[in-house]
Design a protein around this nucleic acid. Structure first.
Lengths: 223, 223
DNA sequence: ACCAATACTAAATCATCATTCAATGTAGCA
DNA sequence: TGCTACATTGAATGATGATTTAGTATTGGT
């Protein structure tokens, strides 16, 4: 044999990334293959060549997006010492920042995945795997904190379920642009809930304000 | 003038009801006008005659469904004496029962409305109105309980936002069929949260178990 | 240079609907 | 009865967009 090196991986991620963007701004239903291929600078036929069908592309794109988010968040978290610090950071990462479109995108796609998972088995499976992984991460932080004595007694699985659901519900409101629910409030509520259930002092919460100020300055400098 | 009595209202609800069912089991994207007209026993053209377009039909159907839920819930609640009893019942009504398909339907449609509201202005407006009404209802119960001394101090609006988001997030998991999250657990978590924030004794929680037993018997009798 | 394997695309295909149209039915009323 | 206004539909119409096809590059290896 002898041929050409496979670009499969490169092309696939190129298309998945394009699909993410398109889905985030047009919505799953209104995403056409041509939109994705246009954004990726390729032809529609090529998308089918690599993914087999539109359905597969969309499902994979949603899973891919959430995977990106998770990978990034996980990397962040492993660099942090102390369970309560880590919990605080985990909450920060999950709360939709509103300022940066980029991070809202993950939430938008997450919502799209929900509605799709209600009927598409493949999407349901992927969503479930992502959910489980995320809850495990939360539960793991709880266990760590309990071992170290930072947190009080509390069922880690149950707490993970609770916190994760709370974040989903609150983030949703932020996405909708509810004037009464901004990222700041969500963060505060999640932190309170965690501190209450786990019994730790969320004095680290000041950190977020500092970050926000830094961002403001950054924006001011750019604009 | 002289003519024929308008069936407009009758036909519209007939179609909205059909649309609810179709959307709940095929999903918003895959709902065709023909599905709705078939289910209603009418012609596709008639749907357009009454609603103008598919888009309008769908948006109205989603809002209609949530309206039905709310009207029913509200009626229920007004018949109850005592703020804590009322809060307990409110939570019961909102938690997806899983046993009865009918009530899950509202939740399914609620999720569909979410994804649509991210991009369709009309849907966004309706969703917002429904959300506001629901939160007001919660907040009102809180205020009532505070006046009567049943509940401790707590910002009613904030609590409403919190509880409503928590319900959304948890109900979602039930819809997905997460084995670790059934209606019972959701109910318990919401009740705990409410009791904790508002400072009342959720001893009324036994009621739900009784109901469940009654349902079991009912089912057994039917099967 | 030439072959094999892969990458890619333009232009058909083909099916699927939403929407429109032209026509027919029907009920109240004069 | 016959008129008017509304109700209803079968059969076009027209777009749209996924997927196929048939063929053209491109490139690494020989």
């Amino acid at each position: 044999m002898g041929a050409r090196p496979k670009l499969t991986q490169k092309r696939r991620t190129q298309m998945l990334e394009a699909a993410m963007e398109v889905i985030a701004d047009r919505g799953l239903c209104d995403t056409r293959i041509a939109d994705v291929s246009d954004r990726a600078g390729l032809s529609p036929a090529l998308v089918v060549y690599y993914f087999g069908s539109k359905e597969k592309l969309l499902t994979e794109a949603l899973a891919y997006a959430e995977d990106l988010f998770y990978i990034e968040a996980f990397r962040e978290l492993t660099g942090i010492e102390g369970a309560s610090e880590r919990m605080v950071r985990l909450i920060e990462l999950a709360c939709p920042p509103v300022v940066r479109r980029e991070a809202d995108e993950y939430w938008t796609l997450w919502v799209e995945l929900w509605s799709r998972a209600l009927r598409n088995d493949e999407a349901a499976r992927k969503r479930e795997a992502l959910e489980r992984r995320w809850r495990n991460t939360i539960a793991e932080v709880v266990r760590e904190g309990q071992r170290s004595g930072e947190f009080g007694p509390c069922d880690p699985e149950r707490f993970a379920t609770y916190l994760s659901a709370l974040m989903d519900g609150l983030a949703l409101q932020v996405l909708f642009g509810d004037p009464a629910v901004n990222g700041e409030l969500v963060y505060e509520m999640c932190l309170d809930a965690a501190a209450g259930e786990l019994g730790f002092e969320p004095d680290a919460s000041r950190r977020r304000d500092e970050e926000r100020e830094a961002e403001q300055e950054e924006l001011a400098a750019e604009g």
